[in-house]
Design a protein around this nucleic acid. Sequence first.
DNA 1: TTGAAAGCGCTACCAC
DNA 2: GTGGTAGCGCTTTCAA
Lengths: 357, 357
Amino acid sequence: MNQSDRSARVRLVDVARAAGVSKTTVSDALNGTGRLPAATREHVQRVARSLGYRPNATARLLRAGHTRLIGVAAREHVETPWVYAELAYFVQLVTATTRAALVHGYGVVLLPTTGPGDCWLDMPLDGVFVVDPVEGDPMVGDFLAAGVPVVSDRRALKEVASGTKEAGRWVDFDYGSAARQVLDHLEDAGAERVAVVAAATTACFHQQSVDAYLDWCAERGREPRIAYLQGPGIQNVLDAVEGLIDDADALFTLVEGSPALLLDTIRKFGRSVPDDLLLVCTTEDPTALYTDPPVSTLSYLPDETAQAAVALLVDSIEGRAGDHGRLFSADFQIRASSVAPGRGPARRTAASPLTPG
Amino acid sequence: MNQSDRSARVRLVDVARAAGVSKTTVSDALNGTGRLPAATREHVQRVARSLGYRPNATARLLRAGHTRLIGVAAREHVETPWVYAELAYFVQLVTATTRAALVHGYGVVLLPTTGPGDCWLDMPLDGVFVVDPVEGDPMVGDFLAAGVPVVSDRRALKEVASGTKEAGRWVDFDYGSAARQVLDHLEDAGAERVAVVAAATTACFHQQSVDAYLDWCAERGREPRIAYLQGPGIQNVLDAVEGLIDDADALFTLVEGSPALLLDTIRKFGRSVPDDLLLVCTTEDPTALYTDPPVSTLSYLPDETAQAAVALLVDSIEGRAGDHGRLFSADFQIRASSVAPGRGPARRTAASPLTPG
DNA sequence: TTGAAAGCGCTACCAC
DNA sequence: GTGGTAGCGCTTTCAA
């Protein structure tokens, strides 16, 4: 009853009939294949156009054996679907993934992070990029078991029973050393009470970063000062900052928040950056460059990551060998917000040690 | 040669053979259709699982005659693909579209805004939502001609030769009156030299907003003060503000920019909001609420728009009659940034006239 | 040069 | 209850 246009839709065979040729000839004429006289080809093309013929995409995909579609899912906040899209990191990652996929001739499907069981398997995907899987994330296993190539992080791949033929490839960061790099920098800049704002999630990034922080504190016999956000949203971030700020001389945020707004808030509490509070934000928000003072940032390179992920995925899909994975180093940009002015330049160079040159 | 896993992939017929039943029985057992004894059903399911069988999504889609996939394209910056994703408006729109689509059982494909000819027609889509089409946008016409249901804005639909059977449905705003509402408010608040920051694009929103501004100025015999951004990026916005600010007592931005950063920049130029410069931003950035002062915003309701668009699209796809379109009113939230403190409350009520209640 | 026919993998109709 | 078989719309091999 519905799908009323089904009958109205002109098919290959309709064109063939109208042009007085066979389906083969139409297909060849339209796809530039076969060896047809130019006259036939043009005639068929004219008829096809006049009928408004459009090949059915699904049918060609079935025939072709692939869909040229890859899925992308950001899993960090599985329980609150899609709020993560408000975070600049994921937005840039998805954006860059789309751009990279296009270059390789693939389209991108936004995967639901929730839904009935393994509904994601119903989508006609050639491969998937699972970003920030949570602990024991079922999505990675589901796709791998279904024989769909996956790119994700190493932990997620390791968790999956390695019996599957396709092991999955990975894109990863050493989150722990990135965090230590920031913490060391803050210590060098004179901070003694570094506070951290983290999210309550089992995504690799947060777990490893927090672990690194706790270890770092333990090594120094310092008491950790950490606030776990219970959900996304600006108010949560500002509240967390408020709770930590009185007893801290440096703030390292693992969650995204507008740098300009963060500075405003800190100012409102009577503190001043960098004079009596150093600030480093994990963020992709480009406004960090333009604030007063400019804010030091730790970036997890969404563009580079996405490009590598897509390249890896496409290799996997198209049966090329290629690398098993790519390990990246986070990009730490030191700006005025984390350099105490009275103390002169920090002992470490301002250039990121992990990304020399 | 590639697609090496093709042969490895277990198909329905493999399961049937292994279970010693027919394809039909397997299909019925796995899909819960038909009337099979529980024993058979379970046996088949067990065999299927042990073989790691996964139905081929493309094949079921071909059979079903639909793909449960809708495309979404944001066309405002066709020439610079995907930079628009950095804008909160599009991000929220795509996010909300994805969420709404999921509710209706559809997945979302991010459409390339560029690429060889009508490459978008190769994707197996049931329908598309074309956001902010540019003037004479080919994408809308392509899809309509191909018989793919489209939701876009009224202008885009009107531009297409109306000979097609499916006319397309629309979601729209009266951009002109929204702009006038803001301008009138600024005038009421005492502004005499309202400057506008716009983008150089032929998207309906910008064209109509700018036209409304020019008309509004002409009616008052005022000289328009307007800056057209030549591209996205923060620096462009800040430069535009710098160019306008000296000769303005109110600023109305049509392009997105971090409210907090905008305030900082204005402060840097020695101006103060709202004391000697009123500010209204067209933005979805929720930080506008938390700045000091909070910034007045004009919102084009991405969530509501997306929900309506998806509902309209799904109606169209599934052959239901439903509405032809939905006209929305922008949401103007007046906050401290556009209320001159010395002059007392503005003459107009602070509640948005367009969204009473 | 052209066309008939065999599928791609699945679901559903309809006999058995 | 179960299983042939037709067919979704296309491409491609192969025979004419």
